[in-house]
Simulated scan of single mutants.
Amino acid sequence: MDGFEIRVATQRDIAPIDVLLSRSYPILLKPDYPPSVLVTALPLISKANPNLITCGTYYVVEDADGVVGAGGWTFAAPTGHQPRRGRGNIRHVVTDHLKLRQGVGRALMQRIFEEAASAGAEWLDCLSTRTAVPFYQSLGFRPMGEVSIDLRPGITFPSVLMERAL
């Protein structure tokens, strides 16, 4: 993938990832979610989680423009549920809306697949936005059904649970 570098995220990436999330999510998610959902969810999902960013299995994709993609995986479930043996979880993936279909997301996910398999994951679960379902399907994930993620008391976000064997 010419022109891109994928590396493990560090604490210094938190601010650039915040910028990427807050710039891209409103544009990317608008076609698939009503304004009533976005007005409450975007302020919560457009912020980087410092513990996730610095966990060692979260990555950034950089090019000459800076951070143009981010995402990772963990054995810990994003919803706080108990981890399941051999199953990893895709975590907070985003591609700059100006860099879609240029290989950023696909290269990032390939790195995640390799690292997760190397660490012993046999399956990956993903809580996908409605918007990203076709992307994840193109990578071999299959939809398992719609779920509602509790972001805060009284604030939920409709998502699609997906899974993929490694």
Rank of each mutant, 00 (worst) to 15 (best):
A165H: 11
I112G: 07
H92S: 14
A76Y: 01
I45L: 01
G103M: 07
W123E: 13
I17K: 07
P43T: 05
P83D: 07
A132V: 05
L42D: 05
M144C: 15
L139W: 08
R142E: 11
V60F: 03
Q137P: 12
P153S: 03
L20G: 12
R84M: 04
A165W: 14
L52I: 13
F157W: 15
G105S: 01
T54G: 04
E62T: 13
T129A: 00
G103Y: 09
P143E: 14
L38G: 07
V19Y: 09
Q82M: 09
F113E: 13
E62R: 04
P50W: 00
D65E: 14
S118K: 15
L52K: 00
P153L: 12
D32A: 11
M109W: 08
L28Q: 11
S24W: 12
V61N: 08
V8F: 10
S24K: 02
R23Q: 15
P50V: 00
A76N: 10
P43M: 02
I45F: 00
L29G: 00
R12E: 14
S46L: 01
Y58P: 15
L166N: 08
V67K: 06
Q137C: 11
R142N: 07
P134C: 15
F75Q: 04
S22I: 00
M109P: 06
K47T: 15
A15Q: 02
G145Q: 10
A70G: 07
